[in-house]
Design a binder for these strands. Structure first.
Lengths: 248, 248
DNA sequence: AAATAAGCTTGACGCTTGTCAAAGCGGATT
DNA sequence: AATCCGCTTTGACAAGCGTCAAGCTTATTT
């Protein structure tokens, strides 16, 4: 349900020298001068350890963050300690868009593995957008894409049963990983069963049971966090009829 | 969960001559020339009958629509006929933001009562934004606000029980109506029980039963679509601890 | 005005999922 | 290498909500 990358990452060389994120999540089609302007605005990348907060709900919003490498979750927490995971994000995806509306971050962003992000100071990106129309348009598209993603999650949470939710979740991960050049049917989950459950509106026991059920049916192989999709088509059948549920 | 109005509507006179929506959902702080530019871009208002589609999922996206008067729902429909209502929208609120990402509308927008909307051609708004920074910033804020709203709905669907969902729903409607100058505790629902249920991830019978339960407890009075909140504080207690659930 | 349809309420029942509990496993730490 | 702790799995049971069905009210049609 989350893929904000416009160009396939594996087709590009990532320049590690100065963390210019334009290869990762910014549009192609800029001329040399525009790229130079962009480079001047994008800050050095920041390295993060697993478990570290990139930002917290309530902090002042100044920047968007693009994931260079690694894996994050975003979540809103309630006063009594319950947390709702609102997304799992991987390389090339953007975090912090919800902070623009009130100049305060509306969620926490937490690294689920050692990661590297690029900081995009928003007000400078905004003014750069006025000089570079295609950049401005790209930001509107990114924000709209986030809205579409969220609506798909609403569909999932409002209409689907546990098995359908988990199938949609696995297929979405698979699709996003494969678009980044990783194996589509063999991957390692970066999040716990509890975090999956929070995202899908299920309890961790239900997640565990449902994964076991898929395995018993020979559709997947579960070895702790290592997942293999043996019969992805069976998973797809499960969510056939649930439009849009299979990611974008 | 949805209030995209930046200035209280009831403090403003709505100029009915030419549907300039700037009073409704566009920012204050523009000078005379900027307002003239805006007026040139905003199209005549369009009147709609109850049940009419403003746009449909899959249609080409060209414009955003601001509600001048009336009430809408937006929903995504699945292939097998199930529908998920993704929002209920009232005057001053904006529809169509999800279409920017792919140039195709991602949901249906349907009038729930006779309504009037203003069309905002997006590409012209986009270029106008480059000339008027505060307008550009306002659009980013509107889109971000929609993301925050959607995340709150995810929290509702993922974490809350039927009673909590319905309490949050009623209080959110109440708050948005009162910010428009209507009574906060006495209003008429424009949507059916089934549509409420679709939005809240519940079946219509559960919506009906839960409303009856609230009434039995003396918290509300239900007379078909006419709702009175007798003890709104009791509803608020119900969702205390569900952060952000009470709208923005 | 009668007839029909659509929406709403309420009850009985069953399924899905949550809750509580116990035990297994693996990774981290010392 | 041994111990501890967190995560996961699995079972038994309960609760909440969905499903099915009947009857009701209101709105629409003829």
């Amino acid at each position: 349900m989350n893929d904000q990358t416009l160009i396939p990452l594996h087709t590009l060389k990532v320049s590690c020298s100065n963390c210019s994120l334009r290869e990762l999540c910014l549009p192609v089609g800029l001329n040399r001068e525009e790229l130079a302007q962009l480079d001047a605005v994008i800050r050095q990348s920041r390295r993060m350890k697993r478990g570290e907060f990139l930002f917290r709900s309530g902090e002042n919003f100044k920047s968007l963050y693009a994931i260079r490498t690694g894996f994050f979750k975003t979540c809103v927490s309630s006063q009594d300690g319950r947390e709702q995971v609102t997304g799992f994000l991987m390389s090339g995806e953007l975090m912090g868009l919800d902070g623009i509306s009130s100049s305060v971050h509306g969620c926490d962003a937490i690294a689920l593995e050692d990661s590297e992000v690029c900081e995009l100071p928003f007000s400078r990106m905004e003014s750069l957008g006025r000089d570079i129309p295609s950049l401005q348009h790209h930001f509107f598209r990114l924000m709209s894409r986030e809205i579409v993603r969220d609506q798909n999650v609403m569909l999932l949470l409002g209409n689907m049963k546990a098995e359908e939710r988990l199938a949609a979740f696995l297929l979405n991960l698979s699709q996003r990983l494969s678009s980044r050049g990783f194996a589509a049917n063999d991957f390692v989950l970066r999040m716990s069963r509890e975090e999956i459950g929070s995202f899908l509106g299920l309890k961790l026991e239900t997640v565990s049971r449902t994964l076991s059920k898929f395995q018993q049916q020979g559709w997947i192989v579960v070895d702790h966090k290592h997942i293999q999709l043996v019969k992805p088509d069976s998973l797809k059948e499960l969510i056939a009829g649930c439009a849009h549920a299979n990611g974008q």
